[in-house]
């Protein structure tokens, strides 16, 4: 079956060297619209480094990244987000002293049209934008059933909901590709099941492409359409979940010979 969906994110021979260490080399991935691709590999394989490259935290020393046909490698982190790649973090990075709704509103900032003048003199434009944003934020929170906790300070949320809020915040940037860095890390089975549901909802509602790093194999095998495996910065396998599960090289990378 030939896939007719357009490619959203594409990398070409992406690589980065820290001093003499080749953290990632010759990394090629193609993600199509609405697709969910898993990125797995043993600890220290370079998965998070790939994320940092894709989001502009690190500048690649070789290769290039394209979002549709726009080259985004070399852009600054916030410009990459504005172009349409949003991410969550392995260790949760919320604005912990701010309320849940404020966390989401910060991600809406780039859509805010009013300037300093309107903010200080409280022009009608200010009220209108703020009202719209609040409504948008509440809608988004509703999808994650966080709407009744909108005014709770983020650090007071339970762990699973903090993860969800981080995903909601990433979605608020109105991106095309969502990068999830170990969303199920540290979660109990119920929370993981909840997360799974959440990911399905995101895919239905937002039609975004998702790249997922995860160690929880049941989750990966369950949701991913395709999986790419890296080890020591090298891609060792790529394909459908069943293929990966039976791939000799992958099993060796995880368990040793």
């Amino acid at each position: 079956m030939e896939d007719t969906r357009k490619t959203v994110l594409r990398t070409q021979h992406l690589g980065i060297t820290f001093g003499g260490l080749k953290a990632v080399s010759d990394f090629n991935i193609e993600i199509k619209e609405g697709e969910l691709v898993g990125l797995i590999g043993p600890n220290g394989a370079g998965k998070t480094t790939v994320f940092n490259l894709l989001t502009g935290v690190y500048k690649p020393t070789e290769g290039a990244i394209f979002l549709y046909d726009e080259k985004i490698s070399g852009k600054k982190s916030h410009q990459v987000v504005q172009a349409g790649i949003a991410r969550t973090f392995q260790n949760i990075r919320l604005f912990h002293q701010m309320t849940v709704i404020e966390n989401v509103l910060v991600a809406f900032t780039k859509d805010v049209k009013y300037g300093l003048f309107s903010a200080i003199f409280r022009t009608p434009a200010f009220w209108k934008t703020e009202k719209e944003l609040h409504e948008k934020a509440m809608e988004l929170l509703k999808i994650f059933s966080l709407d009744d906790k909108a005014d709770v300070v983020a650090s007071n949320l339970p762990y699973g909901e903090q993860r969800k809020l981080e995903i909601a915040r990433a979605l608020a940037t109105n991106m095309k590709v969502l990068l999830l860095d170990e969303p199920a890390a540290g979660m109990n089975p119920t929370e993981t099941a909840d997360l799974l549901k959440c990911i399905k909802v995101i895919r239905e509602k937002f039609k975004v492409a998702i790249l997922l790093i995860e160690h929880d194999m049941s989750l990966v095998m369950n949701v991913c359409e395709r999986i790419q495996v890296i080890s020591f910065g090298q891609t060792i396998a790529a394909g459908l979940p069943e293929e990966i599960a039976n791939n000799q090289q992958v099993i060796e990378a995880y368990l040793g010979k």
């Binding site: 989001t55 935290v57 600054k76 982190s77 916030h78 987000v81 504005q82 949003a86 991410r87 973090f89 990075r93 919320l94 604005f95 912990h96 002293q97 701010m98 404020e102 966390n103 509103l105 910060v106 991600a107 900032t109 780039k110 805010v112 009013y114 300093l116 903010a119 200080i120 003199f121 409280r122 200010f126 703020e130 915040r169 990433a170 608020a172 940037t173």
Partner: peptide, 29 residues
């Protein structure tokens, strides 16, 4: 106070809480 209670205040408090996450939400810190 008006400055603090607008998008500007929100973003600068976000920077205080987490700089990396602030730029990961598309704001030029």
């Amino acid at each position: 106070v008006m400055f603090v209670r607008s998008k500007f205040g929100r973003v600068i408090r976000a920077i205080r809480d987490n700089e990396i996450a602030t730029s990961a939400t598309g704001n030029d810190i």
